[in-house]
Design a protein around this nucleic acid. Structure first.
Length: 428
RNA sequence: GACCCUUUCAUCUAGGGGCCAAGGAUGCUGCGUUUUCAACGCAGACACAGAGGUUCAAAUCCUCUAAGGGUCGCCA
């Protein structure tokens, strides 16, 4: 079983998708099950259901075998915690968190609650004080080899005595994650870089519970939006990228390109499964580069089947697909293409002295017979309207595409000739 | 403040003592093509963070310095 945790928020981030993607790819490669744990306990952010997350991931063709909701596992976490308590490997603690803004030197319990468990228990009983359950400090240094970051070893003082159960009875994310690994026997856990230093704590918890199976860890570098991560808090939201008109395939392509050795620049998820290698990932943080993503998006749109491309815009016509591809030059996202195609299919308007000529042309086209060749079409219009050819071409472009520039009209015309009367409409 | 990690063009990377006066891709600049913008084609500019070592030979190994990132909560 390969696992990865992700927040159960409506707005999944690029970094979250990154972890999920890597987990999924490696699970396909080694033909193991892929498990995603949804951290839906105690977060203030808007929650979303497992179905919502699953359907979002499905857009990316990521279909994990199992989605686990941590809120449904609560009793198991509590059971583990009480087991540790009864073995005196964990203890109740009355220490209240210091001011979060100025973290204390060590995260250990200051009042040596562990040494005075009877007294603590009594206080809790008599005064109903809020308390947490902490794991006992580790005896010795804990080290492991991260698949991306290399060897990590951390002294017991640094691990401290992490909280297992919070005062509201809910597990801490760290504890929940350690338990999830044990319950589902996870052999590889992919997570974000920022959790690297808490991993020894997780290992310590598992060891205390007598779990001996090895879990490999891979901590992915973060993808930053701006120059100095701190000042630019532009959220790299997946939903937003999709709304901007990026194809899921292009986003996947980008994520696998960044911080990775790649045999090609342009590829799809199934290709990537063939060559992806966790060990070649760079531990360096990555700067999000939208231009690269745009370029990839264009490539993926280009590679799409004509007819399926047109279905993204409510058509089912390979010619419309080709028409869209003609516009890839100036439009590299779905939404930009949509603006183009909408402009073509809506009535055109313009002001000034061109208005009269536009009207003439529109009427002529409406009444014209079906003409296959663009040249003949233009000749017909020149003869009928008496407008000189160069001028007519400019007007015709406006009447068809609603913009002064774009792909060559002779390329466009054969693709839209069946729709020409619908397209060449003019509203004063 | 403490601990850990990283450093090759603007960006993502190739490289693992000699095949490297450093290759590819994106972006940028110019030219071509185009009624037009873009795309496309061709050409061009742009990097081994710095200083010391080791070696016949260093982008590559070692040390220090600098810069970036991460962590030090009942956060996630």
């Amino acid at each position: 079983m390969f696992g990865s945790a992700l927040p159960a928020t409506v707005d999944l981030g690029l970094n979250d998708l990154h972890s999920v993607l890597i987990t999924y790819i490696v699970s396909r490669q080694r033909q193991e099950r892929c498990l995603l744990c949804l951290e839906d306990i105690g977060s203030e952010e808007t929650q979303s259901s497992d179905q919502e997350i699953a359907s979002l991931l499905k857009k990316f063709a990521i279909e994990p075998e199992q989605l686990l909701l941590q809120s449904e596992q609560k009793h198991r976490y509590q059971h583990f915690a009480h087991t540790l308590m009864s073995q005196r490997k964990a203890f109740a603690c009355l220490c209240v968190a210091e001011n979060p803004q100025t973290p204390s030197q060590d995260s250990l319990c200051h009042n040596s609650c562990f040494e005075h468990q009877e007294m603590v228990a009594q206080q809790i009983k008599e005064q109903k004080l809020p308390y947490v359950i902490r794991i006992k400090k580790a005896e010795e240094e804990i080290s492991f080899v991260d698949l991306i970051q290399g060897k990590v070893s951390v002294a017991p003082e640094r691990i401290g005595a992490p909280v297992l159960l919070r005062s509201d009875g809910n597990p801490s994310p760290l504890f929940a994650s350690a338990c999830d690994d044990m319950l589902s026997n996870t052999s590889l856990r992919v997570c974000a870089m920022r959790h690297l230093d808490s991993t020894p704590g997780e290992i310590h918890i598992k060891q205390s519970l007598g779990y001996t199976a090895k879990t490999d860890y891979a901590h992915l570098p973060a993808i930053h939006a701006g120059e100095a991560a701190a000042d630019d808090d532009t959220p790299l939201s997946i939903r937003q990228l999709l709304e901007e008109g990026f194809l899921p395939d292009a986003i996947i392509n980008y994520l696998l390109l960044a911080g990775n050795t790649h045999p090609a620049e342009h590829f799809t998820l199934p290709n990537a499964v063939a060559w992806f290698d966790l060990s070649t990932l760079s531990p360096d943080p990555i700067k999000f580069d939208k231009e690269t993503l745009q370029h990839l998006n264009r490539r993926h749109l280009e590679a799409m089947d004509d007819r399926s491309l047109s279905t993204l815009f409510g058509f089912a016509d390979a010619d419309i697909g080709r028409l869209l591809k003609l516009h890839l030059g100036e439009a590299d996202t779905i939404s930009a293409l949509e603006r183009r195609i909408k402009a073509i299919f809506s009535p055109k308007r313009c002001d000034g002295d061109t208005a009269g000529q536009m009207q003439t042309l529109a009427t002529l086209i409406c009444e014209a017979p079906m003409i296959d060749a663009f040249e003949d079409f233009v000749q017909y219009l020149v003869t009928q309207s008496g407008i000189e050819e160069a001028r007519l071409l400019t007007l015709l472009r406006l009447l068809i595409t609603a913009t002064p520039d774009g792909p060559r009209l002779e390329d466009i015309y054969p693709l839209i000739s069946p729709y020409i009367t619908e397209i060449a409409r003019y509203t004063p």
